[in-house]
Computed example of a mutant assay.
Amino acid sequence: MENTYQLGPTKHFPVATVNRILKDVLTAHLQEAEYDPEFCRQMTKTISEVIKARVKELMIPRYKLIVTVYIGQQDGQSILIGSRCLWNPKSDTVSSYTFRNSTLFALANVYAVYFE
């Protein structure tokens, strides 16, 4: 990519739209799903690729995307998932959505980092 001397985004990342994408994708893929470790392993890959493709369709220039998906069994236990990032709070952002049904939970995150 050639240097454009552009130090900030011309268009802000649409967090609300990405949150809606996360909700739609997780609900569509996991609404009727039962927890199975092998199924969940494959589904994390599938869901993360679908989310990444749908967010890329928004055509937000100069943003690098990182998509993470966690799926686990819902059986009365608790889990804490944390993350840290070193970024510019004026241009970089994260979108997150948690889905639950009777047998599983899923957490999807999209980190959008502006590329100068």
Rank of each mutant, 00 (worst) to 15 (best):
V55W: 06
V55T: 09
K56W: 01
K56H: 04
E57I: 00
E57G: 02
L58T: 08
I60P: 08
I60D: 06
P61C: 10
P61R: 15
P61H: 14
P61V: 07
R62Q: 12
R62A: 05
R62N: 13
Y63L: 06
Y63N: 11
K64I: 00
I66C: 12
I66Q: 06
V67A: 01
V67W: 02
T68N: 15
T68E: 10
V69N: 12
Y70G: 10
G72S: 09
G72P: 11
Q73I: 02
Q73R: 15
Q73L: 04
Q74I: 00
Q74S: 14
S78E: 13
I79L: 15
L80E: 08
I81C: 07
I81K: 07
G82H: 07
G82L: 00
G82V: 00
S83V: 02
S83M: 10
R84L: 05
C85Q: 05
C85G: 07
L86M: 08
L86F: 08
L86K: 10
W87T: 03
W87P: 07
W87K: 07
N88Y: 01
P89H: 11
K90F: 00
K90S: 12
K90M: 02
K90Q: 14
S91Y: 13
S91A: 11
S91P: 00
D92L: 00
D92I: 00
D92G: 10
T93F: 05
T93Q: 13
T93M: 05
V94L: 08
V94C: 13
S95T: 15
S95K: 10
S95V: 05
S96H: 11
Y97V: 03
T98I: 13
T98H: 09
F99C: 03
F99R: 02
F99G: 02
R100Q: 13
S102H: 15
T103P: 11
T103A: 04
F105S: 09
F105W: 15
F105C: 08
A106R: 03
